[in-house]
Amino acid sequence: MSEEKFIPEASVGTPQGKGSGSTMERRSFFKWLSIGWLAFTAATGAFFTVLIRFLFPNVLFEPPQSFKIGYPEEFEIGKVDIRFKKKYNVWIVRNEEGMYALSTVCTHLGCTPNWLDTERKFKCPCHGSGFRATGMNFEGPAPRPLERFAIHLADDGQVIVDKNKNFKFEKGEWGRSESFLKV
């Protein structure tokens, strides 16, 4: 039996030429190591980004966001029209100067308030927020007024509501011409 074990040269590395040679090797080793880790991190990051992106489809099958609601004369002055609440989630309010479209989504937690004609306010059943016919919040937890949607006249004289554009009071957007239809 031989005492000595066979040690393959490759497993020990090269003992000669220490000094600058081995530090070079070490340096290049670290270089490759960091490049490797960077590549791995980037690939993992990209993978998870794609995973998250996967949750957002390119096409949405939701009802049309822009629709005609009839002629301006059909809306009574001083009344809140609730006919389009169910289908399109908007209220149409007509006053002396014109009309505007209010979102039916409560700004607190997205419930649908009800229009109480006698008290002349929108009252949210979930947490009791109250809004005036203008959409201004005045009671309950709602932090801001209801949103308004773009509203304008089509060529045939009908009113078009475009829910793609909304106007927030607190950003001073109710003053924009699209948010209000002068009649």
């Binding site: 998250i52 949750l55 957002f56 489809p57 949405l60 099958f61 939701e62 997205g110």
Partner: peptide, 18 residues
């Protein structure tokens, strides 16, 4: 509304088919 966490959870802007 079309890119936040709620959308990722609901698969839409409101509670629906998705």
């Amino acid at each position: 509304a079309g890119s936040d966490v709620r959308f990722a959870l609901l698969g839409g802007r409101f509670v629906g088919e998705a």
